[in-house]
Simulated assay, not measured.
Amino acid sequence: MANTTQSKKRARQSETRFAINKARRSRIRTFLRKVEEAIASGDESAAKAALHNAQPELARGVSKGVLHKNTVARKMSRLAKRVKAVEAPAS
């Protein structure tokens, strides 16, 4: 339990930061889920649009310190590859 004024303030700040980061992670997961669903449906235009919308959210997660840079780079790369695979058979 926090005793000093400083430690009490840090505890409050920690709770606030946790709530904000949790909301950010949830938002990012939602965008990723939309891309996954578009890929699964086989709709190339929806998949492209979903990926286009998800990329800035992932980048924002990196800049805010919620996700690691390389993790996001890997996710973007793999998603882009899968979206491109959805396009290829249709062409």
Rank of each mutant, 00 (worst) to 15 (best):
residue 88 A to C: 15
residue 52 H to M: 06
residue 51 L to Q: 01
residue 78 R to N: 12
residue 52 H to L: 11
residue 24 R to G: 01
residue 87 E to W: 09
residue 9 K to C: 07
residue 81 K to S: 14
residue 61 G to D: 00
residue 36 E to R: 14
residue 21 N to V: 05
residue 52 H to K: 04
residue 35 V to D: 00
residue 3 N to K: 15
residue 78 R to K: 07
residue 5 T to A: 13
residue 73 A to C: 07
residue 38 A to F: 01
residue 67 L to H: 06
residue 43 D to Y: 08
residue 47 A to F: 02
residue 41 S to W: 07
residue 78 R to L: 08
residue 61 G to M: 00
residue 91 S to K: 14
residue 6 Q to E: 06
residue 70 N to K: 07
residue 24 R to E: 03
residue 58 L to T: 07
residue 23 A to Q: 10
residue 37 E to D: 14
residue 7 S to M: 06
residue 78 R to E: 14
residue 2 A to T: 11
residue 8 K to R: 04
residue 42 G to A: 05
residue 41 S to D: 10
residue 79 L to G: 06
residue 10 R to I: 09
residue 27 R to D: 04
residue 86 V to M: 11
residue 4 T to C: 00
residue 91 S to V: 15
residue 57 E to N: 13
residue 23 A to K: 04
residue 43 D to S: 10
residue 91 S to C: 14
residue 2 A to E: 03
residue 45 S to K: 15
residue 2 A to M: 05
residue 40 A to N: 00
residue 80 A to D: 05
residue 49 A to F: 07
residue 50 A to F: 07
residue 89 P to N: 15
residue 11 A to T: 13
residue 84 K to R: 14
residue 66 V to K: 01
residue 39 I to R: 01
residue 49 A to S: 07
residue 57 E to M: 04
residue 65 G to D: 01
residue 22 K to T: 04
residue 9 K to H: 04
residue 53 N to D: 08
residue 70 N to F: 06
residue 82 R to L: 11
residue 5 T to D: 12
residue 36 E to S: 03
residue 41 S to G: 09
residue 25 R to Q: 03
residue 63 S to Q: 08
residue 88 A to F: 15
residue 42 G to S: 15
residue 56 P to I: 10
residue 26 S to I: 06
residue 80 A to N: 04
residue 47 A to E: 09
residue 78 R to P: 12
residue 15 E to I: 12
residue 40 A to M: 08
residue 70 N to I: 11
residue 87 E to H: 13
residue 51 L to E: 02
residue 44 E to Q: 15
residue 35 V to C: 07
residue 41 S to H: 14
residue 74 R to M: 01
residue 83 V to F: 01
residue 66 V to R: 00
residue 42 G to Y: 12
residue 8 K to Q: 11
residue 51 L to K: 00
residue 37 E to L: 13
residue 24 R to I: 04
residue 44 E to M: 10
residue 10 R to V: 05
residue 26 S to E: 03
residue 54 A to L: 03
residue 62 V to K: 03
residue 42 G to W: 13
residue 9 K to Q: 10
residue 77 S to K: 11
residue 17 R to K: 11
residue 23 A to T: 01
residue 37 E to Y: 11
residue 11 A to D: 11
residue 48 K to V: 13
residue 34 K to Q: 14
residue 80 A to L: 02
residue 50 A to N: 09
residue 55 Q to N: 15
residue 91 S to F: 14
residue 72 V to I: 05
residue 70 N to Q: 03
residue 30 T to D: 05
residue 63 S to K: 02
residue 1 M to I: 01
residue 24 R to S: 03
residue 85 A to H: 08
residue 33 R to H: 10
residue 49 A to M: 12
residue 18 F to M: 09
residue 80 A to H: 05
residue 48 K to A: 12
residue 41 S to I: 11
residue 20 I to M: 13
residue 12 R to M: 06
residue 18 F to Q: 07
residue 49 A to E: 08
